[in-house]
């Protein structure tokens, strides 16, 4: 993390506020805290903010605020961030049915790691994952923190259709496909929750800065019951 933010012009209507140049939790939490601060103020003329691993893209209307004013406002907000501001605000528990038809690559990931499939499930559901950012496609979370032992190569030939809710592994990353799409990740399970729905407010179950905890479901019946309930929702709580 930098000692103080670095400001980069991205054209005449956006400013990149870089807080660091690496993927680490401390920098990332500060990015989300800064986003919340910009929005809570609110800073006039800001049209949209896009948080990512280590920077905040602040889109603005130069007819309302100049780049210099904007920079000063953001600098002041950044300086004021305290320990409480940078703490994650939500833990989102996501039920997953691992293996079987819902996680056809669980066996591959297990044998690649030299583990029993149950050990893969324990390792995968045993840690908290920070949502570093959401991007690539609507609702797609970039999660950090997966056990390195679970790393597995992508499929040689991507699937033409990966069902919505699929939980996969690609190299050292894990993620959830929010909507059905082609993809090459190794699928180890699936959630019955609807991760992304354009007409819901907010549309994405996960927000950048959340913490995700995967909870193994015991049976297909449980999965189907949750799916039938049409649960978008989640069990969210303030982290302890």
């Amino acid at each position: 993390m930098y000692d103080s933010p670095s400001f980069l012009h991205a054209g005449d209507q956006a400013l990149v506020v870089e807080l660091g140049d690496s993927i680490d939790l401390k920098t990332n939490r500060r990015v989300h805290a800064l986003m919340r601060a910009v929005e809570a103020t609110p800073v006039p003329g800001v049209t949209d903010v896009v948080p990512s691993y280590r920077s905040l893209l602040v889109n603005y209307d130069p007819l309302i605020i100049t780049a210099t004013e904007l920079r000063e406002r953001v600098e002041t907000l950044e300086k004021k961030l305290n320990d409480r501001d940078v703490k994650p605000k939500r833990v989102v528990r996501i039920p997953i049915l691992y293996g079987g038809q819902f996680g056809p690559d669980l066996g591959f990931v297990a044998s690649h790691a030299g583990l029993h499939p149950m050990e893969v499930v324990d390792l995968h559901s045993g840690v908290d994952y920070p949502v570093f950012m959401i991007g690539f496609s609507p609702g797609f979370p970039y999660l950090g923190g997966m056990s390195k032992r679970l790393a597995a190569p992508r499929l040689d030939t991507p699937r033409t259709e990966t069902p919505a809710g699929s939980v996969g592994i690609a190299e050292s990353q894990t993620g959830i496909y929010p909507v059905a799409s082609p993809g090459g990740w190794r699928l180890i399970g699936r959630t019955p929750l609807r991760m992304f729905h354009p007409e819901r407010v907010p549309p994405s179950l996960l927000a950048p800065g959340d913490v995700v905890r995967f909870e193994p479901l015991k049976s297909e019946n449980e999965y189907l019951r949750l799916q039938a309930e049409g649960r978008h929702a989640l069990i969210a709580e303030r982290p302890s």
């Binding site: 054209g11 209507q13 990512s52 280590r54 889109n59």
Partner: peptide
């Protein structure tokens, strides 16, 4: 780079050196 937000009109340059200007339906990050 470490992926970050993609502003309208950004000229991104992948490894082949050929510029791509990002327009209305661009992905949000790159």
């Amino acid at each position: 780079i470490v992926s970050d937000g993609s502003p309208l009109g950004a000229i991104q340059v992948p490894g082949d050196g050929k510029p791509i200007v990002l327009l209305a339906d661009r992905g949000t990050t790159g």
